[in-house]
Nucleic acid binder design. Structure first.
Lengths: 70, 70
DNA sequence: ACTTTACGTAAAGCGTACATTACATTACTT
DNA sequence: AAGTAATGTAATGTACGCTTTACGTAAAGT
């Protein structure tokens, strides 16, 4: 899974700390998310999409086995 | 957070087991998600939205502190 | 040179999203 | 009445999302 968190954050001219405060999470969480160290919970993904005024699907790009195959 | 998994599943005429197979998760996971026992991971939410041909935001309804306040 | 700002790493701990297995219940079919 | 399909509950275990605290680095301002 790829994320556009860093790109969106820069577009909005925000620092990691500002974003973490808006989200009420630690700055570490933002760093880890941007670096792809782990994936956000559904609620956190939703909050991020709200802040960046886009959909969850616009913020995260799913690949391979993260998609349904049938 | 509310989910419309059960409603969508019924609309599509699927059993919990059929859905669990498509998702490659256990049937217990479906039951727990539908009953609101816990929230799906982002990847699982995405797969569910794919199967029901809707967006993640259409499948899950976020309430209160699950939204950004500012 | 020193400070400040923004970004990064490391480590330990907690809660929860899942898995797995086994058994119970309800309703429909025959 | 007995069997089967669909749904549910319970118990235990594992992996990971996220926290907290503390320290490291690099660039820019003064």
């Amino acid at each position: 899974m790829k994320t556009l968190i860093r790109e969106k954050r820069n577009e909005w001219g925000m620092t990691q700390e500002e974003l973490s405060i808006k989200l009420k999470v630690s700055r570490q969480t933002i760093i880890s998310l941007e670096k792809g160290k782990y994936k956000p919970s559904l609620v956190l993904a939703h909050k991020l999409a709200q802040i960046f005024e886009c959909s969850i699907e616009d913020l995260f790009i799913f690949e391979g086995d993260e998609n349904v195959v049938e």
